Structures are given as structure tokens and as C-alpha cells.
Simulated scan of single mutants.
Amino acid sequence: MPLKARRKTTIYNIAQKARSSPSAVSSALNGTWKKRRLKEETVERILRIAREEGYTANLQARGLRKAKSGLAGLILPNHENRFFAELSETFALESQARGHCPAIVHAGRDVEVQLQALRDLLSYAVDFVFIAGATDPDGLARLCRDAHLPHVFVDQPCAQAPSVVADNRAAAAALTETLLEDMAPSDPDDPGSWLYLLGGEETSSATVERVRGFRAQMQASGFLYSEDQIIACGYDPVRATDALGRLHRDLGRLPGGLFVNSIDCFEGVVRYLAQVPEAETKRTQFGCFDHDPLATLLRVPLRMVRQRSDVMIAEAFRQLDAGAQGGSLLQVPCELL
């Protein structure tokens, strides 16, 4: 005789066993019990019974004693990029100083992977989450709101949540201006003498702002001759290598200047430069919107932008402490090195 399937536990079953109301059970499970002024012993009894009954689905957002787990969540694209690595380290140190245990997830830039990373953090009942490099900020914010989870976006903003980002437009304009000053004079009839921007995703808020800064400074200086000077080839190093190779072949030489949008793209640029005669590379002015101290060892003229990860994390915690909600946006100035 086949075994009888176990009935799915509901909040009504839990309410009956806990000698409480279904609404009280719901409040205990989603972390809103303090607003209803439920007794702590009642909440603990409900949570204990929910765990015993295997009711884990609604324990995602809250589920530990006093609705606090002591975990601080951070989602970021990767740890290889120095900016994100510094962001991660600063977050960990600040979280630990506040008595939290950092739970940091590397989620890449795929929408579904980032959403699943957030669901996983919710299952561990993190007390709050910072989200860096969000591909779908609105979807992530919606998931946080549904779980009543405090959240702040870093690096990529969200129109529906507190956000702390670099002042991408101003920094891009400053880097562009410096490169133009260091370059040989541009000739409108000679594309090989122009300054080009390479890298980044056209759908990325950071890239959009950097392109705006680049374009505005180029127009102000009279050196934006063609939209072909902006090559948004993504962040992948291999794609950056291929894009620079095509530009090199089309021009017959390296361009007069190259604004590289991110250290990941710059890695691809360096790979390509390894096969170019050193004398030719020295005729090009290079700039990178990111910072890595090892890049100073390269034998090419190079300027870099450092995003202040320490300040961004500090400001994100201030937003969290203030209980900020809605689409507030704070932009942090960068350093031009």
C-alpha cells in the first residue's frame, strides 16, 4: 500500500498548534510582529513550531530569535575586479564592527543569478542587504520590499530604493579632459588621431553616465567628430581585445587616445597591446575608469579613475541607519590618478 503523502503545513495549522491567530502567525513569519506588539514568547513559540513542521518557505525573510539573524548581505558581480574586491572588504570590516557577520555572494551580471542570490540570502534571514552592480535593480528591489528587507543599492542605482553610486559623469568628463590635454592635436580628417571610448554596456547606468561625461567634454572641446568614437563592447576582457583589434586594423595604427571603461576591459586592452610594438603604444594616451596600482608598472602613458569604495560603503550604511526609503540617490566623487 503506497505511503500517504504528508499534508502541506499552512499558517492555519501552525496557528492551531501555537494557540494563536493566523494573522499573528503571518506577522511572526514575515517579521512585522513588533508593529502588532506581539509578545516575544508568542513569536518564539510560533517560529519553533514552524521549524518543527518544516514550514520554511515563509521563514525566508525572518525566522530567528527577535527576527534578527546577525547576518549582513552583500551581492556583487565578482571579486576579481579591484573595485568590487575593495567594496567587499570594506563592507565586511564595517559589518563586523557593527556586530554582524558578512554574507557576501558573487552573482555575476546575469539577472536570474542575481535574483537567486537574493533569494538565498533571504533564506538565511539576513538583517539587510547591499546590492552592487545590479542588472535588474527594480526586480531586486521588489523582492526586498516583499520580504520587508532593508536594502541599499551600490554602484548601480535603483529608482525605487536608496542608492549610493560614483559620480560617473563628472569623473568621466575629468578623465576625458586630461587625456585630450596630453594627446597630440586631433585632426577631424584623421580618425587615427581621435580619442575613443571603449567598453561598457549601453544598458548599464554607470556606462550611460560615463558616456554622457565623455561626450559632453568632447563636444565642449570640439573633438567629438563621430559616434563611432564610442565603442560599448561590454565588460568582458576578450570582447575588449577583439574590439581594440578591429579598431587598430581599421585605423592602421593605435588611436591618439583611448578611454577604457572599466578595469576588466583594460585587461583585454593590455592583452592586445602585448602584441603591438612598444614604440607604437607610447604614442597613445590611455585612460581607465577604474584603478589598479599594478597598472602603473605598464610602459604606456596611463591615467586612472579610482572609485571611492570606502566612502560609498560608509554612505550606504548611513542610508541604512537613517531608514532611507524610495529612490534617493547619493553620488560620491571619484579620484583622478
Results as ranks from 00 to 15, higher is better:
Gln307Glu: 06
Ile263Lys: 02
Arg299Ala: 12
Leu251Ser: 06
Arg299Lys: 10
Phe259Lys: 01
Val332Cys: 05
Leu247Gln: 07
Gly222Phe: 01
Glu278Val: 15
Arg308Val: 07
Gly257Asp: 08
Gln285Met: 15
Ser226Tyr: 04
Gly234Tyr: 02
Val238Pro: 04
Gly268Pro: 15
Phe259Gly: 06
Gly245Tyr: 05
Ser221Gln: 11
Asp242Leu: 09
Arg253Gly: 02
Ser205His: 11
Asp321Tyr: 04
Leu302Val: 09
Glu335Pro: 07
Ser204Leu: 08
Val276Lys: 03
Ser328Gly: 13
Val238Gln: 12
Ala279Val: 15
Gly257Ala: 11
Arg303Asn: 09
Asp310Gly: 13
Pro255Gln: 08
Leu247Val: 12
Ala324His: 13
Thr203Ala: 12
Ile230Asp: 05
Val332Trp: 02
Arg283Ile: 10
Ala316Thr: 06
Met304Ile: 02
Gln275Phe: 14
Cys288Met: 02
Val311Ser: 05
Asp264Met: 10
Leu320Val: 00
Thr203Met: 07
Val260Trp: 11
Val270Ser: 03
Gly323Ala: 15
Gly252Trp: 10
Arg246Ala: 02
Gly199Met: 01
Glu315Ala: 15
Gln219Asn: 02
Gly257Asn: 11
Arg210Lys: 13
Val270Met: 07
Asp236Glu: 14
Gln275Glu: 14
Gln331Trp: 10
Arg299Val: 07
Gly222Lys: 00
Leu298Ile: 01
Ala295Tyr: 14
Ala314Gln: 07
Arg306Ile: 05
Arg318Phe: 08
Ser309Lys: 03
Ala240Ile: 15
Val208Cys: 09
Ala240Thr: 12
Ile313Cys: 04
Ala324Thr: 15
Glu227Lys: 06
Arg283Lys: 12
Phe259Met: 09
Asp290Tyr: 01
Ala279Gly: 10
Arg318Leu: 13
Thr207Ile: 04
Ser226Lys: 01
His291Leu: 07
Leu329Ile: 14
Thr207Trp: 03
Glu335Tyr: 09
Ala243Glu: 00
Pro333Gly: 13
Ser328Asp: 11
Val311Asn: 06
Arg271Ala: 08
Ala240Phe: 13
Leu320Ile: 00
Glu278Ile: 11
Gly200Gln: 00
Ser328Leu: 14
Ser205Arg: 06
